[in-house]
Design a protein around this nucleic acid. Sequence first.
DNA 1: TTCGATGTTCGCTGAACATCGAACAACCTA
DNA 2: TAGGTTGTTCGATGTTCAGCGAACATCGAA
Lengths: 119, 119
Amino acid sequence: MRHADQNPDVDQLTLTDVLAALSDPLRVGLVRLLADGEEHNFGDFAVPVAKSTLSHHLKVLNTAGLTWRREEGTRCYIRLRRDDVDARFPDLLDTVLSAADRDDVGGHVTTPGKPAAEC
Amino acid sequence: MRHADQNPDVDQLTLTDVLAALSDPLRVGLVRLLADGEEHNFGDFAVPVAKSTLSHHLKVLNTAGLTWRREEGTRCYIRLRRDDVDARFPDLLDTVLSAADRDDVGGHVTTPGKPAAEC
DNA sequence: TTCGATGTTCGCTGAACATCGAACAACCTA
DNA sequence: TAGGTTGTTCGATGTTCAGCGAACATCGAA
């Protein structure tokens, strides 16, 4: 269940890798969901692709340094690496997320039932 | 000398296309040079690739909506579409250019002799 | 131990992309 | 008219990428 090179070091992040990771609508949709700051796992993403494809996209986000992942038993929890990305590329994530929200980029990425939370 | 679909309309620009165009170090280098706001042509770019490759990259930037091009005789003048991009995706270009400057992304893209200008 | 849930990895495919050199078109100039 | 300059387009080549299903590993629960 482990990736070869997970959670790269902050100073290994490159601008072009981050931009490449964000140049796919599905991945932008994932990042928008992750932008709540919470930890998520696969079940939290309702995407119109096979689970192997979802795994691939989440791996791209992780190796680009956009997400942090942590394993617990058979689940892996994923969270946006906002502070690290902000430290490395100030304002980039905010700017992209704002634009993505305005245009609803990756809007086909939703959450399933998600029981209204806050309880 | 004409491209099929040049200078796309402002509201045709998509976030992911722009980010994809900016996910290549060479193209980021070109954009950094273009960030002076001036018009440039091929001769202004000293890049370590064949001229057909340079043509390709400039076309990618143009179809993504990042540059404006204008033909005059046998030369084509290229300029950054900063106002349009800013209108469509506020702060994005500034943010990316700042990060690119800090990391010197695309630093291998330079200007040749460039006779000190301002005369 | 057996089953279900959760993700990863492994081929595999078709599409897209970066790169080159060569050929071409358009224009300017001598 | 003959060259030279400027940039585009056209194969060709090799790489990367998105996508799938199938197989696998791991864990918790029955």
